[in-house]
Write a protein that binds this DNA or RNA. Sequence first.
RNA 1: GCCGCCCUAGCUCAGUCGGUAGAGCAUCUCACUCGUAAUGAGAAGGUCAAGAGUUCGAUUCUCUUGGGCGGCUCCA
Length: 652
Amino acid sequence: MSTGFELFTDRNVVAMRVNGELKDLAATTTDTDTVEPVTIDSPDGLNILRHSAAHVMAQAVQSINPEAKLGIGPPVTDGFYYDFDVAEPFQPEDLKAIEKAMDRIIRQGQRFQRRVVTDAEARAELADEPYKLELIGLKGAGDSHSDDNESVEVGGAELTIYDNVDGKTGEVYWKDLCRGPHLPNTRMIGNGWSLVRNAAAYWRGSEKNKQLQRIYGTAWPTKDELREYQERQAEAAKRDHRKLGKELDLFSFPEEIGSGLSVWHPRGGIVRGEIEQHARKRHQEGGYTYVYTPHITKADLFITSNHLVTYKEGMFPPIRMDEEVDDEGNVTKQGVDYYLKPMNCPMHILIYKERGRSYRDLPMRLAENGTVYRNELSGALHGLTRVRGFTQDDSHLFVTPEQLEDEVAKVLDFVISMLRDFGLEDFELELSLKDDEKDKWIGSDEFWEYSTNALRHVAQRTGLKLTEVPGEAAFYGPKIDLKTKDAIGRTWQLSTVQVDVNLPERFELEFTDKDGTKQRPIMIHRALFGSIERFFAILLEHYAGQFPVWLSPVQVVGIPVAEAYEDYLGDVIRQLRDAGVRAELDASSERMQKKIRTHTTMKVPFQLIAGEEDAKNGSVSFRFRDGTQENGVPIPDAIARITTAIADHAQV
RNA sequence: GCCGCCCUAGCUCAGUCGGUAGAGCAUCUCACUCGUAAUGAGAAGGUCAAGAGUUCGAUUCUCUUGGGCGGCUCCA
């Protein structure tokens, strides 16, 4: 018998795994146990650090406000939070006071002491903590959601309370219902932590429940790592597409139009146009046909598709047409309701249905940049990534069951190679499956098995990292989602490929097979960028506004050293424009240094400068985004260099 | 939608313990004609988000509405 303290003397060890289970170092082990150390910088160790910091924060809050009732306090990515039920929401000044109190607790070196309790004991000790009592009740009811945040409190096989006690006297300062494990001592939290913000959050994540006040913090093994984290946050803030969109004059959301509805300025329009043109060309090469469909439709269409049942809250309210009302307000002629479309699929289906289809018509690949409108909750809106009107690069493929696997494989290859064209490189896949829950899924077991296997084979063949997530499929079929990592390591979900037998069924789609029988096609829903607005925002952040040359709104700006060289440099700019380059001459009366500054902040990839020297030699001088320069480049070479960079989608 | 915070010139922000406002940049004018990140001078620009209330008086206090930000929920 020995404790973790005896087994591991390394100060970086904060807990241990005993036969695979995380335990406090104070726990005892036997010779037959498999015991592994958990260091503070490991994923488990970080969680323990952060969860322990959450406890200290809760103790600090209750030391300041004994009336604060405890919610839950789990670790999350990069940090932790704790929820409190308090009469008055926290203010920024409160966070400072809480940090001070936390600092005292940490310096005090309180020990975390684990204690097993019965249900009755826990209820008695936590009589003043209604939310904890509710959690105890849940556990009693055999609730076994083992991976949610609540399990941090009551997820173990037995109920445990952690006491925070004085390192020397053993006096109990505070206690909390908790599964553990914890750091041995609050001092190990060190100084690599900080409170980040406070916000409201619904108790147990349901908007039907009361809102609690949540305080978020971040915690790291060292102060240096905290600083690095803060720098990463600052870098992300610098790249924020909402900020760059304003600075680079790309798009805006005029209040007069309404929230979540974007307008695209000339510069943003150029970038978006390049994205769309490139995608269009690739789609046409890939056997897709572009179609156009209207923005509004009579209700019938979305009743048939069932969207007006399952998705009604997500849709804008109807526009009533042709209704006539007399002076008393009685309806004398029935009107018709029109809806803004939240999806394009039913419209594409109607194109399919316009005439009888043969197996020879399949696969049929319809593509559209279809603008859809969704009544998103106002609080959910966020820049261009979450809006009320957006354009999906939507495709619907109609295939025979036999074609499904091949076609999905093609689609996935297509998606990946297209995203590579835009400079994204790091991908992984998520295969969403059905689970055992009854009633949630439609379609036969055979269909699910067949289509799931098809998607799995295809996904595996890409060689990309693949995660399978049971229960995440659409109710009508499995799907593959593609995620990408941007330049600063953030993950974005982009493309989705979904198999659907539901809509073909609802709309009674058919094709005539070789043997003359009528068969039902399978539909594949495919969004590549997801939403063009959102994809644009992701690229903008990925490149921090420094788009590769082909996407840059202005590719070249000519800056004459003095007015006398405007004609000379203007001629070079004209040649570039003739070659299809977006080149401009800055003939304003500013000084050249000022112009360089202006166009550098606008992130123009090539600045061409010419004065006496270059005019004499028939050359120009390059200044690049990073401030480096290359002087005396002969004009033809300069033009070739620029056009090549555009054609190659090069970053400069 | 919910909770909290916020909205002052085109932009970024000061400011007014209630007596109707200021800077820098951008814009316009003039002078300077200049070789790699801001030339100088001057001018113009604001019903302090909108509406209502309290007050002798509101940009400032209160309420309502709109918009934004951070979360929750939701999601392309």
